Amino acid sequence: MEDQDVSVSSLLKTRPPKALHATAMRYRKSVVAIMVTDDDGMSYGSGFILRGGPGGSLVVTCEHIVREATSIRVRRVVGVGEGGGVEDYAATMICKHREPDIALLRVPDLIQPSLALNLAVPQVGLNYPAISVGNACPADGPGGNWDGSTLVRLPSTLPGCIWYAFASLSTYDDKVKLVMYETLFLNCETVGGMSGGPIVGAQGVIGMGCKMSDDGLLMLAVSSSTIIQVLKLTAGLHVDVIRD
């Protein structure tokens, strides 16, 4: 049975379900690069648009990406080839939470409601198909890190599946309120620059990629249910959610 599970999970890394792949490809237009300037220079990661409208957009990303930021800009790739280009926007921090690595940004000049992604809280289990979407670093960039092409091309899609999930009940900021911190462990490839990007499941965004496991074999993601709880507590934001 274990060998069969490994075979299925390996297959999902190369041949994801067609409908899921199509969804992830559509969602790429809502995934942005987070460009951060701090005392050490410039760094970047990924994020995704959670809400949009006349007042601008709200973007979710990882707290560790913007932790020491002195300025934050959001870049969205709007196409490729001669008709393509990029759009850069200034962003400000609304809130951040170190554990479980969630930050919410406001982008006042990014006004496109159609780009908002839906958070989903499905019943996930072993071999649940999922695709990580984000701004992957090319391995041959300067210092083995990244080059200029990373921030002017459409986000990458890295398919795989959930191996297991771990949940723990903790107090929020030493207060009485309890938050269920749920971490998803996926066998998607772990590539620099993908942190902060959405993990896409059949119903929508089921989590956000945060880091790789200590052995480098698995991607760790914070679940959508945890994102929803934290944003409600830190920003008073009520997020519509898709459930099974």
Rank of each mutant, 00 (worst) to 15 (best):
M1W: 10
D3N: 12
Q4E: 15
S9M: 15
S10Q: 15
L12W: 02
L12H: 02
R15C: 08
R15I: 11
P16G: 04
P17W: 07
P17Q: 07
K18T: 11
A19F: 10
H21I: 06
A22F: 06
A24S: 07
R26I: 08
R28D: 00
S30H: 02
T37W: 01
D38T: 10
D38I: 10
D40V: 14
G41Y: 03
M42E: 15
M42W: 15
Y44E: 13
G45Y: 00
S46L: 00
F48S: 08
F48V: 10
I49Q: 03
R51L: 15
P54K: 12
P54S: 11
G55N: 12
G56A: 04
S57G: 09
L58Y: 02
L58C: 08
C62G: 11
E63R: 03
H64R: 05
R67P: 07
T70K: 13
S71M: 13
I72Q: 06
R73T: 13
R73I: 08
V74S: 07
R75T: 15
R75E: 13
V77N: 04
V77E: 04
G79I: 12
G81V: 13
E82A: 15
E87H: 11
Y89N: 10
A91K: 06
M93V: 12
I94F: 06
C95M: 14
C95F: 07
K96P: 03
H97D: 14
R98C: 06
P100W: 02
D101L: 03
L104C: 11
L105K: 05
L105V: 12
P108N: 09
L110H: 06
P113N: 09
S114E: 15
L115Y: 04
A116N: 05
A116E: 02
L119W: 03
L119N: 02
P122Y: 04
P122M: 06
P122C: 11
Q123M: 05
L126G: 04
N127F: 01
N127P: 07
A130D: 00
I131Q: 02
S132L: 12
N135W: 01
A139R: 08
G143Y: 12
G144F: 14
N145D: 08
G148H: 09
T150R: 15
T150S: 15
T150I: 00
L151K: 11
V152K: 13
V152P: 06
C161T: 05
I162P: 03
A167C: 12
S168M: 13
S168Q: 15
D174L: 09
V176Q: 12
K177M: 10
L178A: 13
M180P: 06
M180I: 14
Y181T: 03
E182V: 11
L184F: 07
F185S: 01
F185Y: 15
N187A: 08
T190H: 02
T190E: 01
T190G: 00
T190L: 01
T190K: 02
G192H: 11
G193E: 11
M194W: 04
P198C: 02
P198R: 00
G201D: 03
A202F: 07
Q203W: 07
G204C: 14
G204L: 14
I206W: 00
I206H: 02
M208A: 03
M208T: 00
C210R: 13
C210F: 05
S213E: 07
S213L: 02
D214A: 15
D215A: 10
A221V: 00
V222N: 03
S223I: 03
S224Q: 08
S225N: 07
Q229M: 09
L231D: 05
L231G: 05
K232N: 14
T234F: 07
H238I: 14
D240F: 06
V241H: 05
